[in-house]
Design a protein around this nucleic acid. Structure first.
Lengths: 233, 233
DNA sequence: CAAATAGTGTCTTTAAGACAATATATA
DNA sequence: TATATATTGTCTTAAAGACACTATTTG
């Protein structure tokens, strides 16, 4: 074997793939945590993830998806790479790299699955600071939340936290839960119109007052990125 | 050893760190390529990068920086993680992951170093499609360029492709080289003012017409993100 | 002075913010 | 009818686009 191929000269870092799975439940933002079955941090809550399985995964997207499916039994509606986190100290076993994805899913899709087990739980973002979390996963969750907040200002990705039929009120609530700020309903209506991503259904639904129009994503639409952010204030 | 720690049950993917280093040279966007000294793709042009050295690198940022310094002898003014690229087919040696950074540097900082060797070269972005490039690095360069273009619309990062003293005209030219579209000088002036990131020097400099005001970054400023994009057209 | 580039003034345009007004449910 | 929520209308505001106009330098 040529020295060019001598991979043993470098100690390959420990490489894992983890995911921050978000949803909106009870009008607030939740993240999926899993009770760790193995050391290190056995018994603590952590992000769903693990090692790449070269036999099963064509790439890391599939590793992330496979691990999410193991815990929720369904594929999320939205999945995107966040970033890698690495370091000499983040895992007691040595230099490690975790490639982190973040994902959005509607709570209905996973409700029965999650309610039936006690090692998987939706955790409110407000509980995270006080919770003992494995590795640097607390930090990772904060980064994922920041990215989601940013993206909510110039795109419609919060719809992927909702059922596929939803009202403008639900979408408004979801966005406000994500960014922790009220937004103008009118701005949202304008964006729904301008993006051309959605279609109004014939159906309307109860809401406590006037019936609300149901919308759904048009099939196979691309996500529109608006050229301005919603304002924070 | 507990089975929890049995890492041999998984074949750890091949992990590398690569960087797409950009600069502005002759009013156009260039990327730094390195002639590969080793297989695979020995002799082809590729991105600077390589394996993590657990002895030298505290994290992957330092791996990226170390490799860039090896080729240019200086640290870039801007360095940010782009994304990981992975797959079963992108490296003949098997499942591999490369964590890619992109970086910006002023050409003056590296000119003498690069001119003195023949295995490192600034390549114009327009040459990339016709060039034989190692691995999936052509695809990676396109992704890095897209990210840089996007970011140029709502931030001032193109200044990191310039010398630390620069004129508005130079910055305008740099942005236009990155996004391949003309922009309004007035918009740029307004952003320089609004961002409060820069200070005008006492000095002015020749430009072919009226003398141009020199600016520099204020020390330790954070990069401002504007709430709107410059328009494409 | 002509040409070139720098810098300013200002009107227009675009899309969001603010919020009033109207519509339609339920108790 | 009172209340709650949905929907629409429209005026204001913020920041970019367009582009004319002035300023300053060199040949």
């Amino acid at each position: 074997m040529s020295p060019d191929y001598d991979l043993t000269q470098y100690q390959n870092p420990l490489f894992t793939v983890d995911s921050v799975l978000f949803t909106i439940l009870q009008d607030s933002l939740k993240v999926l945590l899993v009770k760790r079955a193995n050391a290190p941090f056995k018994g603590r809550w952590g992000l769903p993830g693990g090692f790449v399985d070269v036999e099963l995964d064509d790439n890391t997207d599939m590793s992330a998806l496979r691990k999410i499916k193991e815990k929720t039994s369904v594929a999320p509606q939205y999945l995107e790479q966040l970033q890698a986190f690495s370091g000499i100290n983040r895992d007691p076993r040595g230099f490690s790299v975790t490639l982190v994805y973040y994902a959005l899913i509607s709570p209905q899709q996973v409700a029965t699955q999650i309610d039936s087990v006690d090692d998987v739980r939706w955790v409110d973002l407000s509980e995270i600071p006080d919770l003992a979390v494995a590795f640097d996963h607390k930090h990772i969750i904060e980064k994922a939340k920041a990215r989601l907040q940013q993206k909510a200002l110039y795109s419609m990705i919060p719809v992927y936290c909702l059922p596929d039929q939803f009202t403008i009120g639900q979408l408004k609530t979801a966005i406000e839960a994500i960014i922790s700020k009220p937004i103008q309903r009118k701005s949202l209506v304008r964006r729904i119109e301008a993006s051309n991503m959605f279609e109004a259904l014939d159906e309307k639904v109860k809401s406590g007052g006037r019936l609300a129009q149901l919308y759904k994503l048009k099939p196979d639409v691309d996500i529109v990125h608006f050229e301005r952010n919603l304002s924070l204030g």
